[in-house]
Design a protein around this nucleic acid. Sequence first.
DNA 1: CGAACGGTTGAGAGAACTCAACTGAAGTGG
DNA 2: CCACTTCAGTTGAGTTCTCTCAACCGTTCG
Lengths: 236, 236
Amino acid sequence: MSTTADLQRRAERITEDLRLVNDLAPVQRRVVKAGEVLYRPGQALDNVFLVSTGMFKSTTLSADGREKVIGFHPKGSWLGFEALAEGRHANEMVALDVAELVVLDYEALLESSARHPALMRLVHRAMSLEQARQRESLLAMGTLPADARVADFLFEWAEAMAAAGLRNDQLRLRMTRADIGSYLGLTIETVSRAFSRLQRHDLIRFDEPSRREIRIPHVDALARFVQQSASAAALH
Amino acid sequence: MSTTADLQRRAERITEDLRLVNDLAPVQRRVVKAGEVLYRPGQALDNVFLVSTGMFKSTTLSADGREKVIGFHPKGSWLGFEALAEGRHANEMVALDVAELVVLDYEALLESSARHPALMRLVHRAMSLEQARQRESLLAMGTLPADARVADFLFEWAEAMAAAGLRNDQLRLRMTRADIGSYLGLTIETVSRAFSRLQRHDLIRFDEPSRREIRIPHVDALARFVQQSASAAALH
DNA sequence: CGAACGGTTGAGAGAACTCAACTGAAGTGG
DNA sequence: CCACTTCAGTTGAGTTCTCTCAACCGTTCG
């Protein structure tokens, strides 16, 4: 769990990064519609992106046809770095929302960052942050039971919202239960049941009957629930 | 699965990277003993490392005390980039072997890579490759049953050995069953049973009674087994 | 209006986990 | 040098959790 000061600092960093990129590198802006695909696996790397509003979903595909949602990417996320290894994109990236992006030509970004150490540091930090996000996912999938995994997902999201300077007690689920299940390594039914159980424990509330709008009465309680589930499993 | 040509190219790239780093950045060399800790969570980032021989294990720790093995890092791996996000290391990194490292001062690496675009690209590619490795782990943990996860682990390792220019039909398990279980999100017992079942299907062989030395009669058969397990789960 | 889709819930099956016993190897100390 | 302890690993039995299969509901869309 992060302190309020941490979240404050992260929010400032996102704003500062957006400004710095604007000042030091040649950028374009782009608006995408919900459902629009930013890039697909195999596509050559030309641009990288910085999310200024909206939310994206990344999906990966193995050689033998397995598919999995790898992450959800809110404001402040960099998109496209996964392509640097091979020069071609490894993921599919889809907008879940109307979204706004800062578009950077990768080659131009390289040049700019050679001239501006601050920009190079920023890029390195962004890549490392993406690694940290994936590490969190690995940890959750490897150590938490289903209900706690869903709770952790909501909690991490709430923190990301707060870090982006947005309200974090109210989440609009832009992705389907299938997406969440794929992301967490669970089936649709298990995700659905987990939501119901969290609701029963009053850790979340559904205001609308559509069950896509989630209110989190006590964000801390979610984190406590995750912690308890983990330590229960860790005992013995 | 990768083609022989792919593996060949990856092997060449590792050699070339080691040479390039040597030529373009100020480096030191370091030998560590088995069990030696390279860095711990919270420790300030000063150096990053490139593994020239041996194998490392990285472990992460959550705020609420959950612990998990995040990866195993053979020759050609870069270590320490996970610290760029916060300026402090997020993982613990331990040598499983006597190992040899190229040590680079991070600040000096930044300076050198500002002058040498090839070096900057190399560093970006290395970070992206680490991301790809974690993505593979996520995919395996999220989509494969226990036996296939263990098989996939062995297969990926065999490929990494081949990519490092080493023989890939004979693996010496330097980590414990507990490490493997933690890495794959399974218990010790499940890992042990999975090994026994793979042995029964002649996908692996134990030459020594210690069951730490694994022979893989047909590397392709392992990949096929993973694929079959996946498609069986994906049907319907 | 009917079809398609996303989501929820129940019942039963199956997979992985827990608990426990046992083995062999490696240290440790008398 | 040999009991004794410790540790890694294997295997069995029973339990628990998640998945599968199926029915059902509400919304959206042609």
